[in-house]
Design a protein around this nucleic acid. Structure first.
Lengths: 113, 113
DNA sequence: CTTTTATATGCCTTGACAGGAATATGATTG
DNA sequence: CAATCATATTCCTGTCAAGGCATATAAAAG
């Protein structure tokens, strides 16, 4: 479960991260807002913490969690090579795709001959 | 396995996508370049195809695969709320974090005090 | 100290999924 | 047609992670 990619593959963890992106929250707040069992929240927070995606601060009996954004940079960086496909010059991409489709019917199901 | 997040959680699939990001490739080319068993490549390609992350074109007995970038936009969009944490100047972020620590939580759920 | 509140941990079951080997499908060439 | 090349699919197995439940830890309040 090392990689950030695996961490954010889990929908509940994404929900937690998204919530924390707006502002830090205690476990109980997360529990109530996302309507998920406390035990489940704690376990996901543990995974997130060990992966460095969140960190916690103790406040009385509560633990307040907040985002640690660094690991997400890895994901952002990985996306980079794909951004050219949808950002910037769409023209070049379209020409590229059209060239590829020219060679055979679109989507290849064709028995082409 | 619907979500793109789950799809890219797998390292070999990320490798395939990355390779295809540079240019389209046949199954055999992927097999050789990534040094992974053909059966494995085919299976990952199936997953990627069903998730809409790649599409294939038939060329004689070969299937040439290429990127379909759209689904990755979802991932890119999800990252958006976190970008503010690392983009721009760090000062603003620090002030932001400090502000959050100050507040007791905008929740209103507060057990009064 | 006892009780209550807040959070964490352990155990167990279940399901999903990756990998490997063998095989099936399908197109190409002779 | 048979032989061959390229890719897909099936079956099996091991692993790993998520969810539920009970329980442990720890701080606060009475």
């Amino acid at each position: 479960m090392e990689s950030s990619f695996a961490i954010i593959a889990e929908p509940n963890r994404r929900a937690i991260l998204k919530l924390l992106a707006s502002s830090e929250q205690s476990v109980g707040e997360i529990e109530r807002r996302l309507r998920m069992p406390q035990t489940s929240v704690s376990k996901h927070l543990r995974v997130l913490r060990e992966a460095g995606l969140v960190e916690s601060r103790v406040e009385a009996q509560r633990r307040v969690y907040r985002i640690r954004p660094e690991p997400l940079k890895e994901v952002d960086a990985w996306l980079d090579p794909f951004r050219r496909f949808w950002s910037a010059h769409v023209d070049a991409l379209e020409r590229h795709l059209e060239r590829m489709e020219m060679e055979e019917g679109p989507d290849g199901k064709g028995k082409g001959k």
